[in-house]
Design a binder for these strands. Structure first.
Lengths: 209, 209
DNA sequence: GCTGTGAGGTGACTTGAATCACCAGCCTAA
DNA sequence: TTAGGCTGGTGATTCAAGTCACCTCACAGC
């Protein structure tokens, strides 16, 4: 059963009617609950996702430790699945829904012809590559030059902005996982941020200023 | 004066005759001596380079410190100039020739139409984006999880492989600049590698095993 | 000769972060 | 009611790196 154009409404500004019809005919829409791993490391890809609603986070991992690389927001896609899908190579990263999310899944075997015939989809992926390249550069800068307090504060600020919440319900352990460090370090550093008046730990979460 | 097809020989495996003719008509070939800065941070781009001969290294910088991100080898291109050129945005990185190099320079205003009409050039840039994305992931892993001795050894191994030389003529200070640290650290760490039998410091350079 | 400069070496110290060990406050399930 | 499991807090220690200060050695230029 093809999708309806109203389901693809979030993409209507970016894609022309003809491409939207193609997508409606061959794409699938799926909902994923918060915390679902939608892409595993090492996985081979048959479907390329575009986020319609919600928020997806992307991680690199390396011998036990993990690091949050960036978020995929609505109407964005995942360049790792794109390249892994087209080259039939395994994914080097993994991705988890940060909120309940709705994803449009596009079959990889259609992608090559769509890229040729619809410049808009080509542009989308070039944009996404630029964006992710840039975000990886930011990550590198931050790892190389910022201390944990800076990194933690930026992390909290960004998360608060993305989720539109001033109070974040996060365990110290979760934060540590996303920043590639351990719980004790977060406990100490967050206390320092609190003393500097940048955040406040409340019974129901962390308030960011 | 258009280029001759023999000058574009390194690209003949990758591009069809028609595209090669287009490139010959609109491209320019230039030679750069070793150590020339061919792309500055903050620069706006009018020409997109493809390396024909030699080796180019790409750096990120951030408040004084610098870090080597990756090398551009013959028949590869630079995704930063590609995206900065097409979006008319400034470069976030800078690039220096590591050896005497020959570059093919393509005018950015031709690129949009070439991308639409010649899938091969589209494929080249997708490949380059994948490659650089992957290399940035490696850099992140290495920064986050490897100690300096590991990072230094990998750096020396790669440089030796790329330049095809077992003995590298490098000053400690240069190495420090490329790894984002300072001279004393390199002096000490390289001594440890020497004790472990992984490298040897000779009067005329560093031998890597 | 002397002098300046760049390269490499090294000790002493500081610092940011990781690691280890242990404690207290909860909440939940048996 | 009690045991066990999260969660957060904290001191002590270790460790990798960065910083500072100063040295030697080779070499170039007068």
């Amino acid at each position: 059963m093809p999708l309806t154009l109203s389901e693809l409404q979030p993409l209507s500004g970016r894609f022309s009617g003809e491409l939207l019809n193609e997508i409606a005919a061959h794409g699938v829409i799926m909902d994923f609950a918060e915390g679902t791993e939608i892409l595993r490391e090492g996985q081979y890809i048959k479907l390329i996702p575009i986020v319609l609603k919600g928020l997806v986070k992307v991680f690199a991992s390396f011998e036990e430790k993990e690091l949050l690389l960036y978020y995929i927001e609505p109407s964005q896609s995942c360049v790792m699945t794109f390249s892994a899908g087209l080259n039939n190579s395994p994914s080097r990263i993994f991705a988890i829904t940060e909120e309940d999310s709705t994803l449009l899944l596009l079959p990889v075997e259609k992608m090559n012809s769509w890229i040729k015939h619809y410049p808009q989809i080509n542009e989308l992926f070039y944009q996404q590559y630029n964006l992710r390249y840039s975000e990886l550069l930011d990550t590198i800068n931050s790892l190389l030059f910022n201390r944990m307090d800076q990194r933690l504060y930026s992390y909290l600020l960004e998360k608060s902005k993305l989720k539109g919440e001033k109070i974040l319900q996060l365990k110290h352990k979760q934060i540590a996982g996303e920043l590639g460090t351990v719980r004790e370090v977060i406990t100490r550093v967050i206390k320092r941020l609190e003393q500097e008046g940048k955040v406040k730990q409340l019974p129901d979460g962390i308030e960011v200023f």
